[in-house]
Nucleic acid binder design. Sequence first.
DNA 1: TTGTAAGCGTTATCAA
DNA 2: TTGATAACGCTTACAA
Lengths: 330, 330
Amino acid sequence: MSITMKDIAAKLGVSESTVSRAINNKPGVGEDTKQKILNLARRYNYQPNLLARNLARQESNMIGLILPDISSLFYSEVTRAIQDIATKHGYQVMVCNTDSDEKRESAYIEWLQGNKIAGIIFLGNGLANNKIINLGLSGYPIVLANRLVEEVMLPSVIIDNNTGAFEATKHLLERGHKRIALINGPKDNLTAQNRFRGYREALKEYNLDYDPSLIINKDWSRECGYQGFLELLNLEEPPTAIFAANDLIAVGVIEAIKMGGYLIPEEIAVVGFEDTIVTSIIEPPLTTVAQPMYELGANSAKKLFSLIEDEDIEENIEILTSKLIVRKST
Amino acid sequence: MSITMKDIAAKLGVSESTVSRAINNKPGVGEDTKQKILNLARRYNYQPNLLARNLARQESNMIGLILPDISSLFYSEVTRAIQDIATKHGYQVMVCNTDSDEKRESAYIEWLQGNKIAGIIFLGNGLANNKIINLGLSGYPIVLANRLVEEVMLPSVIIDNNTGAFEATKHLLERGHKRIALINGPKDNLTAQNRFRGYREALKEYNLDYDPSLIINKDWSRECGYQGFLELLNLEEPPTAIFAANDLIAVGVIEAIKMGGYLIPEEIAVVGFEDTIVTSIIEPPLTTVAQPMYELGANSAKKLFSLIEDEDIEENIEILTSKLIVRKST
DNA sequence: TTGTAAGCGTTATCAA
DNA sequence: TTGATAACGCTTACAA
């Protein structure tokens, strides 16, 4: 339907290669032929067929982004950052939702490779699967964002969840709490594991052993926060503080606490994790550990482009620090 | 780097076309040669080059999504829905953030067309620009989601903001309010205009003239809600109810109200619009007009695929209804 | 059932 | 400065 280089060449009685050179602003075309070509191209609103171009050049101007769910507060913010950097580099981003399903993850990887995508960012909070690892080891440009791999060291940008959780727990300890519950994400989730580790280390520093009955592993949802708190209430000796492993869980916790008629923070203190918009809206405002979401996205993207453009990358694994923000819930 | 059909053909001593037929599960290949080919393909982890395939087939399996900002609560939810439907149809989605900048919009359109994208969804809340209209009229599959075009009727899915705003305002009137302020988005924004219209119609039904000093047009942000309320307070006769044209504005309004020490809803009532997560978190829970976000995305995508697959579409312009959800802020 | 060859719209090499 | 020509990897008539 649309006009091609061949058409332009025919109309002007020049060869396709000359047209190509003119369009791509390459040397080797006379100034006047070049102008004639560009004028005609403009007049007919010529658009290069990027499929053909990429096929011929053996490259592409897209990167892939594989993530669990674009509608989450956290991931959409990170995505935004990646998009911004990609645009600056003249690249587009293919966003792929996996719902943390490994099958879909694999399917997307194949699809992205089939499209000769320049590189992929894996954003998530689980362990990276084998397919990803092999891909990374094969030299294909990939960056892990907020995901880790046990043995192999692939280029990554992660947030120091350990220290963040440590600070959060320590903050509660300093406030005098001794029975601090942790309502966490799934047990096999790396982020959840790190937050648990930080929690435990803080207790240790205060010479407290952690009580398994105070640890709940469920999901990252509001509902789980709500249910989790109810479960904790049934303990013989219920906790006086809750460390929720993300803000949404904390929201559920706070709702359950209020429903029970307890006072926050006087009777029960709550800390969240992430610093999404909800922390400043909920009553009382939530003490939380701020995650540098935009930075996570931006730095991952920058790292990926370094890889794509074959630049040296300074640090293979970049660790961003999270920061405790004290509000009224503690 | 990766293996191609040519390689497979050479290894097996068959022709490329036979390989192609086998890979694509087309008739005209003997069962045993087919198996031999498929086995080899599996063994070498053959991935079809989709650039080449799409170039040859003159089609693609991507659709484009152009929107203002993926990190917004509203758009990320709509995007999620579009992704879900696209995946079901075997398509991928290219997400393009424009920040409502027309230049970037145009740039994206060209890029998407250059990649021979199968169709585009324009999601936003402004008027569609000329480039979009021309594209639509040229027969290219496009769907407008939550955007309108003045004269031309392009396939669209929109939310009935007018009625939603009408209901919200009427609800306040029924509660006995006479001085109802509207803190709205930008004046040139279509969504904002429709919400204003519904607001005015409701007043009319109650034989009230609208007072221009009670109308504030700013931005869709929390900050604007906060500032807007402060401005309203300075009026000789301040409003007793605020209709905020989206939830984020409402959040700002509520914060300002609380800061001023007023009671909600006893002294000042507040209604929002959208029903994002914040409405159930803020204190008091926000009465709002629920937007069918997921439906907006899903139906837009379905419509686009009807267009792409050349099916008849039942209604060219589909109007989704929004629904008033009464909570404690009124 | 299989192969040949042209074509998709570019780019890139090598001559002219 | 230009133009043939092959190549990118795949699809698809058309022949055999």
